[in-house]
């Protein structure tokens, strides 16, 4: 396809790239991640959900429900710590979507859209940087658990942290999509919480699913969040790689495969 007459001066000539290359996309995503990290450093109150909340919730949930659910706090810890990691990461994922929406309303996003950059970069950059948030939340929750007497398998613990951060990154694409579709940050928050609560509570996060009515148990058992939590339990508590780990990874991959393209498409359309 000839796009420009041969008489054109060099600066507007044929060396225009029709699409960003993969290399460009990676560089641009890293630059956007850098921006997101700077933003985190300078708005530290946005980190409360992955710092103060895990500290507070872990102690609270363990002492309040421990006796009732598992007889005593010590035997509840192996159940509740992975459960709380699941819950905290989901909360952090909601913030990913809401903050993206807020960000997109700012003038600087007009510039991002007007630049010749890959459309995925403004979404993938913050998603990458938010892995730091999931990491902090996971490590803090495990830390509080260990301080309270939880004794995980050392190698399994590392694997569990990696899995938790990967799960956070994957599930965040659901909320990133909400962020690109929603009209306002409040709207995105509303929808996200409506999705987050069932995903969290209709799972095996806080109680064993066999105490639930059958219909509820069916949902809780297929809920990908349940698989992620089970996988974290198997890895951290028992140091074992079980089928739940495979299901968790597969489930996360499926979420990304669906919601990443949806997000990019809806972001590009919004222009």
């Amino acid at each position: 396809m000839t796009t420009i007459a041969p008489s054109q001066p060099a600066r507007t000539a044929l060396d225009l790239a029709p699409h960003p290359t993969l290399r460009d996309t990676v560089d641009q995503t890293l630059a956007m991640a850098w921006r997101a990290v700077k933003k985190m450093q300078r708005n530290f109150e946005q980190m409360f959900d992955v710092t103060i909340q895990p500290l507070l919730f872990t102690a609270m949930f363990a002492y309040i429900f421990g006796g009732a659910v598992a007889g005593d706090v010590d035997s509840y810890l192996p159940v509740i710590i992975p459960g709380l990691i699941g819950q905290t990461i989901l909360t952090a994922c909601v913030a990913t979507g809401v903050q993206l929406r807020e960000d997109m309303d700012k003038g600087v996003f007009d510039r991002f859209k007007s630049l010749p950059i890959a459309r995925i970069a403004p979404l993938a950059g913050p998603a990458l940087a938010d892995m730091l948030r999931y990491f902090i939340a996971t490590v803090l929750t495990f830390g509080v658990g260990i301080a309270m007497g939880y004794r995980p398998d050392a190698l399994g613990l590392v694997a569990a942290i990696v899995l938790a951060v990967f799960a956070g990154w994957s599930i965040a694409w659901i909320f990133t999509w909400f962020g690109t579709v929603g009209r306002s940050a409040q709207g995105v928050q509303g929808i996200s919480l409506m999705v987050m609560f069932p995903l969290t509570f209709l799972s095996n996060a806080f109680v064993p699913t066999d105490t639930m009515p059958t219909w509820l148990r069916t949902f809780a058992d297929i809920n990908p969040v349940s698989h992620v939590i089970s996988a974290i339990r198997d890895l951290a508590t028992d140091g074992q790689v079980t089928t739940d780990v495979a299901w968790a990874v597969l489930g996360c991959a499926a979420v990304v495969a669906i919601f990443l393209p949806l997000s990019v498409r809806s972001y590009s359309r919004k222009m």
């Binding site: 300078r42 700012k106 003038g107 007007s114």
Partner: peptide
């Protein structure tokens, strides 16, 4: 409206 990043 200036399209620059407030945080930077």
């Amino acid at each position: 409206y200036a399209s620059v990043d407030e945080n930077l």
